[in-house]
Amino acid sequence: MSVATLRQILLITDGCSNHGEDPSMVASLAHEEGITVNVIGILDQGSMSQEGEREVEQIALAGGGISQVVYTKQLAQTVQMVTRQAMTQTLQGVVNKELQGILGEQSEWEDLPPDQRGEVLEVVDDLGESVQLELFILVDTSASMKTKLQSVQEALRDLSISLQSREGGNLFTLSGFPGKRKEIDQLLNWTPKLDSLTNVFRKMTPSGVTPTGPALKAALNQMTKRKQRRQLLSESSGGEDVEEASS
């Protein structure tokens, strides 16, 4: 099985997009590229607008990922759970395909008798521990998010703890949207650790619009470009291959 690297976009937002293309359309595109899109809707109190909640759900559904709407207090635990579960889900998808190759189109691992399922899941768990993860974190920094950014910062630090406890390597990048001149502003370049986040959101200028679609598109472009570049490099020299040899 070739699942050397899992690629995810994690979108954290508190409301509905109100500018640019439909974000779930972009998420479908990402899914086609083999990138999973997870979405977390975040609240201080009360509840999210029905429209907002629906959008959060739709983006994740289109992006082959997981969505969750939570209060700032539960954010840390949710962010790590969603990320891990989405990894497992993707790996299960890969394993299911392999199984269909062996057992025929109709079969999924859930059609196996319970005793054999365990062995399949064991493989998925193993992969989840050792696989390389590339995670593009995209944070809504529009005006209403201002009070929530402290919790976001903490949740990301917490996520880093969880992911670094795995054997496989991680690479993170963090961007905020809307950017000053572009769709998104990079706040942190690709890095294996997320511990230097203090004041990372300070550079952002709060804005009234929430162009979720265009922001997702910019993130997707960066990820696909990165992949192409890596493929080129590894074809010519075998150089910048991020795969970590984990025994």
């Binding site: 768990d125 521990e129 917490d158 670094q164 406890s165 054997e167």
Partner: peptide, 23 residues
């Protein structure tokens, strides 16, 4: 042993208190 902890409760988790990882 050696894998990462996926299920935990914050109060009892050293990662939450900033006192270690989840290995």
């Amino acid at each position: 042993m050696g894998r990462s902890i996926k299920e935990y409760t914050e109060f009892f988790d050293r990662g939450y208190w900033g006192l270690g990882d989840r290995k």
